[in-house]
Design a protein around this nucleic acid. Structure first.
Ligand SMILES: [Mn+2]
Ligand SMILES: [Mn+2]
Ligand SMILES: [Zn+2]
Ligand SMILES: [Zn+2]
Lengths: 136, 136
DNA sequence: AATCTTCTTTAGAATAATTATAAACAACGA
DNA sequence: TCGTTGTTTATAATTATTCTAAAGAAGATT
């Protein structure tokens, strides 16, 4: 349970003004036990449901973008008509249940170290992510 | 070097009528040494350049869809504004050069077996793919 | 507290990838 | 050749995302 006051500080520390909208978005995103995988539309709807206040779609996009840049969210590489985001910003992997269109975390230690025996001159590795697609 | 005749047979064997358009698309996609990673737009432009004949964008989409269903192409899971496809339908992994927006194959043996120490009841694994993002 | 500046929110428009529509056309089998 | 079915195409529709510009709110300055 994170308090509203902590979100306000977190926003201020990030040079983001603690607006009512951003605080509400923080509540929905970060006031939870488990990791949260979502699309913009998921989030947009949850804000209304959980806080009773409506935030414009543009602000949801803007805020998610800002949080991505600050490293409070990350984008999950997956082919879908919508982009998926994740509140778990640590290194980890995913199942994607193709039928349910749901992501499920796989902890790093449940996959083991991945050694890439190939390199590209002049480029360095930014991230290594495993996507496991699931079917029935 | 695959002959036009072989493409015609391949299409017939797949219950796809060997039209001029599909044969041209086959030439562009499959008449090459190395794996080919592309977007619909890449392919659309290459068809004009390589065959001199124009194929409508709708047909490019339709044909890529048909080839995906037949297993002659696969989709690469990546976040981009465009979907990427691959002529290499074997199990393998990818580098994605974020700056150049280019995919590079990583052979399965260059990654080693990936053991997923987690399972979801009622679901089975359809694919396991590693995406390595590259930066400068 | 009033004012000023800068940042933020918002509705709505613009963009762009993809999908749907439906009419013309081409492949195939009889 | 003719009828059927599958295919191509231009074009419209859809939809996620980004852009725009005006109104509003936050923070700093007096
Ligand atoms: Mn995508
Ligand atoms: Mn996307
Ligand atoms: Zn996750
Ligand atoms: Zn590949």
């Amino acid at each position: 349970m994170t308090s509203k006051q902590e979100f306000i500080e977190k926003l201020r520390n990030s040079s983001l003004r603690p607006t009512k909208q951003r605080i509400n978005i923080c509540e929905v995103l970060f006031n939870r036990d488990k990791t949260f995988h979502f699309t913009i539309n998921d989030l947009f709807n949850l804000i209304k449901d959980k806080t009773g206040e409506k935030v414009s779609l543009a602000t949801v996009y803007n805020t998610v973008d800002a949080f991505l840049k600050k490293g409070y969210l990350k984008e999950i590489p997956i082919n879908s008509n919508q982009t998926y985001f994740d509140t778990n910003v640590t290194d980890h992997h995913h199942f994607f249940d193709v039928k349910e269109e749901k992501l499920i975390d796989i902890k790093n230690e449940d996959v083991g170290p991945i050694e890439i025996q190939k390199s590209i001159p002049g480029k360095k590795i930014k991230s290594v992510e495993v996507l496991v697609k699931l079917e029935d």
